Deep mutational scan, measured.
Amino acid sequence: MTSCHIAEEHIQKVAIFGGTHGNELTGVFLVKHWLENGAEIQRTGLEVKPFITNPRAVKKCTRYIDCDLNRIFDLENLGKKMSEDLPYEVRRAQEINHLFGPKDSEDSYDIIFDLHNTTSNMGCTLILEDSRNNFLIQMFHYIKTSLAPLPCYVYLIEHPSLKYATTRSIAKYPVGIEVGPQPQGVLRADILDQMRKMIKHALDFIHHFNEGKEFPPCAIEVYKIIEKVDYPRDENGEIAAIIHPNLQDQDWKPLHPGDPMFLTLDGKTIPLGGDCTVYPVFVNEAAYYEKKEAFAKTTKLTLNAKSIRCCLH
């Protein structure tokens, strides 16, 4: 018999989150649709729960009410004593943790798909938090293969000092899905179709896995975050240069030392320094102006996964 890495157990509980950011409308629209008619997301033997994560922000069509829901799922915020004085999103995070967690427990949901849009030209993107997770690498390989020839990129946010504390991190297997470009507060049919297909293929993978299909060893190309880059700023902290036209919409493309990065209003080009080629992502993302992030630098690498098969009882 072929030796293989056996994944822990079959997958039982899956959640699909929309509206973690209330103005990213593809996930909101799909989740609302699936709450009314969820036939397309159901798979035999699998509990799939669509869920609106930040209903107040969705109602106002804004990213958040008090603070970013997708950055506060750490033990400090989840452990705060519940009171009306807490920011709305912290209270909501505790409610979500109660419903789908608790985080880092045996009772937490197996998989959470968190649906997002970006204003950046990132196409279909899967966000991975753990480079050693054979199950998710296999799932992402399946999704990428199923979507081809449509490109699907994998963004690895594993980093020693950049801690995200994402909404989906309460699950055993957290999956971020990011599709763009799409303006905030807008629905685009092409973007919706791409996100819908990503979810379909992900659920198909889980179904095949649960039925005992063995997935042979595989490898995927990923883009691992190195650092986030702020806009150049003046002495008052105001933005002093904008994304250069040569960099705009060039997510995932190589940016070499000396290539144009920013452009000042008086026409001066600010190039990339250093001696390493990087791959920019979230270029000129609207939501990241407040976070002082013009783009993120990534490096390209390959992740390998062992063969996996479900432990059938």
Rank of each mutant, 00 (worst) to 15 (best):
277 T>R: 05
129 E>H: 07
205 F>K: 01
226 I>V: 08
49 K>L: 14
228 K>T: 13
272 L>M: 14
269 T>C: 08
69 L>Q: 07
142 Y>V: 00
111 I>D: 02
22 G>R: 12
144 K>D: 00
46 L>C: 15
150 L>C: 09
2 T>S: 15
157 I>S: 15
64 Y>R: 08
264 T>N: 06
130 D>Y: 03
261 M>K: 03
313 H>I: 12
279 Y>P: 00
184 Q>R: 12
185 G>C: 09
173 Y>C: 09
201 H>W: 04
294 A>P: 02
267 G>N: 07
4 C>K: 14
65 I>M: 14
50 P>N: 01
16 I>T: 01
69 L>T: 06
129 E>L: 05
252 W>I: 04
282 F>S: 14
36 E>P: 04
159 H>E: 08
127 I>W: 09
65 I>Q: 13
203 L>I: 08
115 L>P: 01
39 A>T: 11
187 L>H: 03
22 G>P: 11
106 E>M: 12
31 V>S: 03
245 P>C: 03
262 F>H: 00
217 P>A: 10
237 G>E: 06
202 A>T: 02
223 Y>Q: 03
12 Q>M: 11
252 W>V: 05
249 D>W: 01
231 Y>Q: 01
207 H>D: 15
71 R>W: 10
106 E>V: 11
170 I>F: 07
76 E>I: 14
307 S>H: 10
214 E>V: 08
78 L>E: 15
291 K>A: 12
43 R>Q: 05
82 M>C: 07
22 G>D: 08
122 M>V: 08
173 Y>K: 11
23 N>Q: 05
284 N>T: 04
29 F>L: 07
255 L>E: 01
123 G>K: 11
161 S>C: 14
265 L>S: 11
168 R>E: 08
257 P>M: 04
150 L>H: 12
86 L>H: 07
74 D>S: 12
55 P>A: 14
301 L>Y: 08
109 Y>W: 06
132 R>G: 15
216 P>V: 05
272 L>V: 10
36 E>Y: 10
240 A>H: 09
15 A>Y: 02
236 N>R: 09
174 P>M: 10
86 L>G: 14
250 Q>E: 10
130 D>K: 03
100 F>C: 14
299 T>L: 07
88 Y>P: 07
91 R>Y: 12
78 L>Q: 13
168 R>V: 14
6 I>M: 15
15 A>R: 01
